[in-house]
Simulated scan of single mutants.
Amino acid sequence: MKELVAHHQLSGQAHELEQVREQRVDGVATDTLGILVRKIVGTFVAAEDACFSLSDAKSIAPDALAFGYRISLTMSAVDHAQTVADLNDLVALRNRLVHHFIDQFDLWCTDGCAAAQAHLNECYACIDGHIERLRRWAHDMEKTRALLAEAMQAPEFADFIVNGRGPDGTIQWAMAGIVGALREATTALAIRGWTRLDDAVAFIVEKYPDQTPRKYDCRSWGHVLSESRMFELQYRTNADDSRVAWFREREANTANHRTT
């Protein structure tokens, strides 16, 4: 039960996932069976019409590369209600055995001991059934996690996460690495909210040399700004009549980026 609660979901910044996982394991180390059942119902054991959210997502910084997953066993409303009832019965059985068993039987006589032994055998059969079901759930969860890990090793997955490019070639610009690099450049170089494009390009070439317009099927950095629709671009005239490109993130995108 602790394995299921600790490992069926995980979310956080990419570089902190292992730490988050360890915290989840530590977080259930001293939980009672009743607490574990409450945690697993509605998350891992869920009705088919349940609405899911990642519980750790609220702690993720808006500018961070983050990842999350949830593995759930969904079932019909009737089956879900029966499963929840079965789990609650298990908790009640555990509590009776731990807290009240000694009061139920006269262990100072042969008949009382025989009755107690018969009762324990019945409880064992019930508990054994629960354990077998939990083992099946844990096996299915681990199999799903292994398949997920295998999928994450695929180059297409890395390309989507890092560059925002889907398997069909479409680009999710809000996730694109080049957009993230441009945002970082504006944070470091902006003057009264605007950043000189040449300075941003130099910043990105030095820090993220693999993030180039060509990777996103763009002819130039200006083309990236236009295609992404994440930035405003304006040209300013210098004293020598040369034109210099400046850009800033669109206000609507900035607000969405901060609250996502």
Results as ranks from 00 to 15, higher is better:
residue 200 A to W: 05
residue 208 Y to H: 15
residue 171 I to T: 11
residue 179 V to W: 00
residue 186 T to I: 03
residue 183 R to A: 08
residue 186 T to Q: 12
residue 178 I to V: 13
residue 194 W to Q: 04
residue 184 E to T: 11
residue 210 D to H: 14
residue 195 T to C: 12
residue 177 G to W: 11
residue 191 I to M: 08
residue 207 K to Q: 15
residue 195 T to S: 12
residue 183 R to H: 11
residue 184 E to V: 00
residue 175 M to Q: 09
residue 185 A to M: 01
residue 187 T to A: 07
residue 213 P to N: 10
residue 169 G to Y: 05
residue 169 G to A: 03
residue 182 L to K: 00
residue 180 G to N: 04
residue 203 F to L: 04
residue 185 A to I: 01
residue 201 V to L: 10
residue 215 K to C: 08
residue 173 W to Q: 03
residue 216 Y to F: 15
residue 194 W to V: 02
residue 199 D to G: 07
residue 212 T to F: 00
residue 180 G to I: 00
residue 169 G to M: 01
residue 172 Q to D: 13
residue 211 Q to D: 11
residue 172 Q to H: 13
residue 174 A to H: 10
residue 178 I to F: 04
residue 211 Q to A: 07
residue 200 A to I: 11
residue 213 P to C: 09
residue 184 E to P: 02
residue 207 K to N: 14
residue 220 S to A: 15
residue 200 A to V: 04
residue 169 G to R: 01
residue 199 D to N: 15
residue 219 R to S: 15
residue 197 L to Y: 10
residue 172 Q to Y: 09
residue 212 T to W: 00
residue 192 R to C: 13
residue 203 F to N: 05
residue 201 V to F: 12
residue 198 D to T: 06
residue 185 A to G: 02
residue 211 Q to G: 03
residue 207 K to M: 10
residue 202 A to Q: 15
residue 186 T to W: 00
residue 199 D to I: 06
residue 219 R to E: 15
residue 200 A to M: 10
residue 190 A to C: 06
residue 216 Y to W: 10
residue 188 A to I: 08
residue 220 S to M: 10
residue 171 I to L: 04
residue 193 G to Y: 05
